[in-house]
Amino acid sequence: MSELLDRDTQLVVSRDGFYHYEVQSQDTLTLHLCLEEGVSVSGLLDLAGAAGEVNLQVALAKEAQCSLLVLNQSQKPLTVFEEVCLKKKAVYEISYGEFAAAKGKRVSAYHLSEEGAALNLHTAILCGHEADITQIAYQNAPATEAQLSTYGIVVEEGKLSAAITGKIVKGASGSQCQQKTKILTLGDRAGAKVIPQLLIDENEVQASHGLSIGQLEEASLYYLQSRGLSESEALRLVALGYLKPILHSLKESKLQAHLEALLQKKVSELWT
């Protein structure tokens, strides 16, 4: 059962559990989520009924763990601001399924402010409109870890702009930051611009980034078709292949199944 969020809400979570919220707001809504020390939760935040602006303010106390799937299927323009603060050894696993039917913007800032804090950010985007995504991980303490994975398909007249930044400050020794971004543009009018950045002011760190943006080659499509797949079937297969890695980021099997069914549906709608 899901709970409706239609006004500013503050949630202080002191018990482990699973939470499911549906945002219904056409204006501005703020959700404060605070996890107390050692608490472990997972959940689904559904933004299908959201428009305007949604603010997510998340704070994880020492050794708290949060595994969250945010689904954006908004039908109207939506801006999401996400600000997350992680204390000592807190773990924040956030997966964004970005399938909005209107233009959208997201600015996510993650502050790994104490030793051992960890961020796992996975984004899967199916973009047929304008989408502007900014994701920044501030690694302000030693032995912090940030993984930022972004997989996307841009179709029709979609325009994706993404800035992905990992910042490791001086003194944050032993920290790790990995960025992986793969974007496929399908169609002559689809476009993508990605700016990956690693801003590092400490020597004892491990950091890497990999980025690929490209179109499906004619030869690849021919290869798939030569095994009996129609053009639509081939494109569906390739698109799912790009988006499916997000499933591995989800620990809850019911969330995995829910998202997998949604991916199948979205891809099938595009290539019938």
Binding site: K182, S220, Y223, G228, L229, L237, V238, G241, P245
Partner: peptide
């Protein structure tokens, strides 16, 4: 051709 993201199993099942 090399096709990233598509596993052999998914491809062959679809074929």
């Amino acid at each position: 051709q090399e096709i990233s993201g598509v596993t052999n199993a998914d491809f062959l099942k679809a074929a």
